[in-house]
Write a protein that binds this DNA or RNA. Structure first.
Lengths: 202, 202
DNA sequence: CGTTCAATGTAAGCGCCGCTTACACGAGTA
DNA sequence: TACTCGTGTAAGCGGCGCTTACATTGAACG
């Protein structure tokens, strides 16, 4: 009676705990049994709410993309008064900053064991939303006459490869400094080059 | 007597088998027990040659960097007669091509569970060698007067972020097409932009 | 040539894991 | 009140990384 037979909100508790574990120690070390123990529940209980371990990781990744989307949207709002090319740069910096601040989450979201497209509709949706910011900002910039030497598609490719590349470089420990500030400075320099390229097309 | 008590070259056999497994199905699915079975040996035998599972992955990654270095060196040789900026582009394409052709190996080499720097001297050495190609090509280009608007360090950062980014984009399934040819074309377009930037600095 | 010994194999076992199956509980409903 | 269905438990399967104690060997050495 001290603890009721039914947990009440086991699913949420599991997702929260899983998010914490992934954030702190990476998705590799996530164990459903440990999650169940932490929630004070038997080792079979999680399987009432998730088909398997990957489904839990999928839920964590979905949370991650939600936060990612929010971070980018917030940055875009903050920079509403800036020139369009500068807004692109800001967005790129925010992209890298998120990766640097939440490396384990970012790796889960984009890494190899990331839940593949088409498995989870909600994940697909939030991922799509998060991925729309950069193309939108680039469209605005082109509409203002910047970066028109290339097609929008090429520009998106270039910008995405750049920012994702800086994030990956940092996450893989190949960048000079390994702290968040270093990643941000690197992002600023690289996106600055992109901005320079776009402005020269005016 | 059909099979001798001592394998004779177990270490090599394990590394070869491990390389194959990682290449085909990714490093996550590598099991020392399965490796031992494949080599016709008991499950404890591998521990005579490797301290733990990570040490095996380390050996596989070392092999990977050797092949990576060879691929880049070969590309650099092939393009010896080309203009320096074009050689940079070729190198970038080769970088991406390797990642696209050996995604699982590439992920092990650069990914999160990649054996960290300082653990294995041989790995550090071969990784350093492989990483020297791009800076060298960029140095040559700058010596010829290209891309001199930026410092060498900045140029290296930019180029590395670009090619590593394209590779990561492709590996993470974010690029348009997911086959090797698509990755190569994407790499060509992106490195082309880099070349354009450098040539404009002449 | 015989001994010795370090390297390299085996066998067995520990605690962990993901996942499944059969059963127990209990809140909402007819 | 009785039933049912969602959600929990208990127990177990096979696989894993890794360790310990013991077996076998080839090669070095007196």
């Amino acid at each position: 009676m001290s603890t009721p037979y039914h947990h009440g909100s086991l699913r949420d508790a599991l997702v929260d705990a899983a998010t914490q574990v992934v954030t702190e120690t990476g998705s590799e070390s996530l164990s459903l049994r440990a999650l169940a123990r932490r929630a004070g529940v038997s080792s079979g209980a999680p399987y009432r709410h998730f088909t398997d371990r990957d489904a839990v990781l999928c839920a964590v990744a979905t949370n991650g993309f939600r936060r990612f989307d929010a971070a980018l949207a917030n940055t875009d709002e903050q920079s509403a008064t800036l020139p369009p090319v500068e807004r692109v740069e800001q967005l790129g910096v925010a992209y890298v900053r998120f990766a640097a601040e939440e490396p384990n989450l970012f790796r889960l979201m984009f890494g190899p064991l990331a839940p593949r497209v088409g498995v989870d509709a909600e994940l697909d949706e939030v991922r799509r939303r998060a991925g729309a910011h950069l193309p939108r900002a680039l469209t605005r910039a082109q509409a203002a006459g910047f970066g028109t030497d290339s097609s929008l598609e090429e520009l998106v490719e270039l910008a995405w490869a750049l920012v994702h590349g800086v994030a990956a470089l940092h996450l893989d420990g190949l960048a000079g400094s390994s702290d968040v500030a270093g990643a941000e400075q690197l992002a600023r320099r690289v996106t600055g080059q992109l901005g320079r390229l776009m402005r020269s097309d005016k």
